[in-house]
Amino acid sequence: MNRLVTVAEMTLRELARRRGVLLLLLLMPLVFWLIRRDSHVGQSIRALLLGISWAVSTAALFATSAAREIEPRLRLAGYRPHHLYLGRMLGLWVLGLAVSVPFFLLTVFDTTNLRYAGIAVAMLCCVAVAAPFGMLIGALLPRELEGTLLLLTVVAMQMLLDPASSGAKLTPFWSSREIGTWAVDHTDDGYLTRGLLHGLVVTVLLTVTVAGVFAVRLRRRRHLHHVPLT
């Protein structure tokens, strides 16, 4: 547990040094929300949720790319692969929650007649899915530009696809749109149930996939042995 916390702290410190990333984390959801604010409450909330998803995914991508150089040394120091990816994921979840709080308060003070608990749950799903999703892209695509373009493509698809279509259900952040619909339009509880189930399944699948990718990429060479830290 201590090693997980250590990696989480390292992740947060690395992101703190990249002030542009922190600015992006706050600016992107705000821009998404402002663009849709005057048109429709539901569209502004859904755009805000996508903005949070984009921001946390991008931070996860940057954190994963930045950690490539130090990961082999941590492995030689005795850290197991699960210490690295779970610790980083933990740090990104904490960061995502910290970013979501002011935007949740924004919806509370700016709009009325919403199921605010549903908005909070939708934001939690965004953060839960975005962290392993961004990490997976960062692990598979070593160049940040390529990963950022892929993230942009996914977000664009999420915005353009009909939420009721079969293809939309295959996108990673469909859960937030489903729960957001329940919170904004006061639909039946089936929307909330489907959204929660989708968010849970996608988070688990992404986490398992991240674990497999990291296990292969960080597999220790047999001729190397770690020296315990004193």
Rank of each mutant, 00 (worst) to 15 (best):
R18I: 06
G91D: 02
V184A: 02
M10L: 15
M157F: 13
R37S: 14
R143C: 04
Q158G: 05
N113T: 14
T171S: 03
G138A: 10
A59G: 00
A67C: 05
Y191Q: 12
V31W: 09
R222E: 13
D185W: 09
S100Y: 13
P72D: 06
H226M: 07
L200M: 09
L84Y: 04
A16V: 08
V94Y: 03
R80S: 14
Y85M: 04
R18S: 10
T112S: 15
R73D: 08
L150K: 01
V129M: 00
E146F: 15
E71R: 09
S165C: 00
A60W: 00
R115Y: 14
A168P: 06
D110F: 15
D110H: 08
T193C: 07
D162S: 14
V99D: 01
I119D: 02
Y191H: 15
A8V: 05
G42W: 04
L26R: 07
Y191T: 07
G87S: 04
H225R: 09
L27I: 07
D188F: 11
L30Y: 07
G87D: 08
W54Y: 11
F173P: 06
L15F: 02
T107H: 00
V155H: 01
S100W: 02
I45E: 00
T153M: 11
M159T: 15
V121F: 11
E14L: 10
Q43N: 10
L106W: 03
L161T: 14
L24A: 10
A128T: 13
A211V: 12
N2C: 05
W182C: 05
M123G: 08
A47P: 03
V127S: 00
M89Y: 05
H40L: 14
R37A: 11
L49N: 03
T58N: 01
K169R: 15
R17W: 10
G78I: 06
S166F: 14
N2R: 15
V5N: 04
Y116W: 14
M123D: 00
A66F: 10
L95C: 05
L74C: 00
L23D: 00
C126Q: 04
F214G: 02
I70T: 12
R177D: 09
M10C: 10
R88F: 02
C126P: 00
R115I: 14
L229I: 14
T11I: 09
A120R: 12
S65L: 03
A117C: 09
F103K: 06
W174A: 07
T58R: 03
